[in-house]
Write a protein that binds this DNA or RNA. Structure first.
Length: 559
DNA sequence: AAGGGTCGCGCG
DNA sequence: AAAGCGCGCGACCCTT
């Protein structure tokens, strides 16, 4: 059963109940204040709630203590189905751009500064263009039904929508964050906080030391230009101020300079200003953008939740009587590639052990490190260095897997689109890309034109090579979270306040905040959900997705 | 002063 | 050792 919710111009809501055949069987006209109770009452039947955008509808329900099991996020689904090669012949894909494309773009855009209500106004319908979510839902259903692999798209839409529920629940619950621990980390590293956002003592002392050693009294070490000039004036042969270039230079200024850069980064990116902006009432609330990356990975908008540096993870501490269960999927992308390619040899290598270790044990390369760089290089399209040199050995050991990514690269170079496991489709290259290719194919093209076109084609090939793996891995992670979310709700009383719930997600890693006594069961559910995600994507093909799972008090202890 | 481009670095 | 994929973000710096 589906229930489609539509906001009326008067602020009320029209709820349309669809039966299993997607025929409308009931309509309820709700006043603005009736929605919460309606959803609460009907959720017991576990319908799939169909709404324009989860970020538009769900926060108010969560605030009122109402969770839902399932939804269809029409905006997210619209974007997937409009772009997928699997639905390219559908009416949905062929219709001109409309209001649903606007909404899809808005929910993917960075959130406005606090207070700007853009996201929450998106489906206040302009009088001339009503949203008509029932019609949109029917168009989406028809597109999926007419596709060559409807099951894959159905799963993708369900997983993406479940992800949207998770993102809102994480924002609502927040990641437990102890401001005083964070402050202690900062003070230990930087010295006490200085007034007015000025640099703290430790940074100032290092800056003074750098100026003296470079004999550059007025130097601002935060300015790359000034710093590079000062380094060169002091006789250092460097072409940039990057730390990996500086690291190999012999000079007494290098050590204090690298420490300065490290502390400066901590101060500017995750210092006291960040703490005051993003942590309130003991919670950090990440601003996730579901499907914000072309590959379907999540992005963030503000707060930098996907870049939390290791050195401040000590501040993430479970509440008293609670624990954090932190899990990450080991070598997720190569294992997803294994499933995509149906590469039996690679599946065998990864079964029950570290994939890279068994590549070494099989005599393919000499060390775990080599196995890892070779694998990453194969998936990223390395052209130089150890990674490119070792790739042929991987190709002999795992021919099907390597052939799959090589084929994806060739398709991209031809400007063909590629697809994830479930049908998410890579974008077409932009207009300037095609112009460059066009110019190079003209009779009068110069050698430079041809070189540029070839190089650009290879760039796009590396993108599509990686797309098939990264996008499919993102789908695995969505399925993992979707399965886990439902299991966790059953374990507790269903509420976010009292029961185990997700508080963080990072591509191949999740964190659950749970009452301590439930932690062992949470660990078990995390593993079950991972196994189920593998089955959803790859059926009976025997590829393992082992996890590293840890029950800890602080995130810093998870690895 | 505001906006955009570039650099550098954090994460997977 | 530091390039080969995907990002966000803050600072500097230049243009308007």
């Amino acid at each position: 059963m589906h229930i489609v919710l539509d906001r009326r111009p008067d602020g009320g809501v029209t709820a349309t109940v669809l039966d299993a055949a997607a025929e409308p069987v009931e309509t309820a006209e709700l006043g603005a204040s009736d929605l919460i109770e309606f959803v609460r009452a009907r959720e017991g039947e576990h319908p799939r709630w169909v709404w324009s955008s989860t970020s538009r509808w769900y926060p108010a329900l969560l605030a009122a203590g109402v969770r839902v099991q399932r939804c269809v996020d029409l905006a997210l689904a619209h974007r997937i189905l409009r772009a997928s090669l699997l639905t390219a012949d559908s009416d949905l894909a062929r219709e001109p751009a409309g209001v649903w494309d606007d909404i899809a773009r808005l929910v993917a855009a960075p959130a406005m500064e606090s207070g700007a209500p853009a996201l929450f106004d998106v489906d206040e319908p302009a009088p001339s263009v009503p949203l008509d979510p029932v019609r949109e839902f029917e168009a989406q259903q028809a597109a999926v039904k007419g596709a060559s692999r409807p099951g894959a798209l159905r799963l993708l839409v369900a997983a993406e929508s479940a992800g949207a529920l998770v993102a809102e629940e994480i924002r609502f619950a927040g990641m437990p964050w102890r401001a005083e621990v964070h402050d202690r980390v900062l003070t230990e590293a930087l010295g006490p906080r200085a007034p007015d956002g000025r640099h703290p003592a430790r940074l100032e002392a290092l800056a003074a030391q750098i100026r003296e050693m470079l004999n550059a009294p007025g130097l601002n070490p935060d300015s790359q230009q000034e710093l590079l000039a000062a380094l060169r004036r002091a006789g250092l042969d460097v072409s940039s101020t990057r730390k990996w270039e500086l690291r190999d230079v012999e000079h007494p200024v290098i050590a204090p300079l690298l420490e300065y850069k490290n502390l400066y980064r901590l101060f500017t990116a995750n210092g006291w200003a960040w703490l005051e902006t993003w942590v309130h009432d003991g919670r950090f609330r990440p601003d996730y953008v579901v499907g914000g990356v072309v590959t379907g990975r999540w992005a963030t908008s503000g707060g930098g939740a996907l870049q939390l540096p290791k050195n401040i993870r000590r501040a993430v501490v479970a509440d008293p009587g609670w624990k954090l269960v932190v899990a990450d999927a080991a070598q997720l992308e190569p294992r997803v590639l294994t499933g995509l390619a149906g590469d039996q040899a690679m599946a065998d290598a990864g079964r029950g052990r570290d994939l890279y270790d068994s590549v070494v044990a099989a005599g393919v390369v000499a060390s775990r490190h080599e196995a890892k760089v070779a694998m990453l290089g194969a998936m990223y399209g390395a052209t130089t260095g150890d990674s490119a040199r070792l790739k042929p050995r991987l190709g002999r050991a795992f021919p099907k897997a390597i052939a799959l990514v090589d084929a994806a690269a060739q398709q991209g170079e031809r400007s063909d689109q590629v697809m994830s496991r479930l049908g998410r489709t890579s974008p077409r290259p932009g207009g300037s890309w095609r112009e460059v290719q066009e110019r190079a194919s003209q009779p009068g093209a110069s050698a430079a034109d041809e070189r540029r076109a070839r190089s650009q084609a290879r760039d796009w090939g590396r993108f599509t090579r990686n797309f098939v793996v990264q996008a499919s891995a993102a789908e695995w992670a969505l399925c993992w979270m979707a399965e886990l979310r439902l299991r966790l709700a059953e374990l507790g009383d269903g509420s976010l306040e009292n029961g185990p719930h997700l508080v963080f997600f990072l591509h191949d890693e999740i964190m659950v905040h749970t009452p301590e006594h439930l932690a062992p069961q949470v660990e078990r559910l995390v593993r079950e959900a991972a196994a189920q995600a593998g089955r959803l994507l790859f059926g009976t093909f025997p590829v393992d997705f082992p996890l590293q799972v840890a029950t800890v008090d602080t995130y810093a202890d998870a690895k």
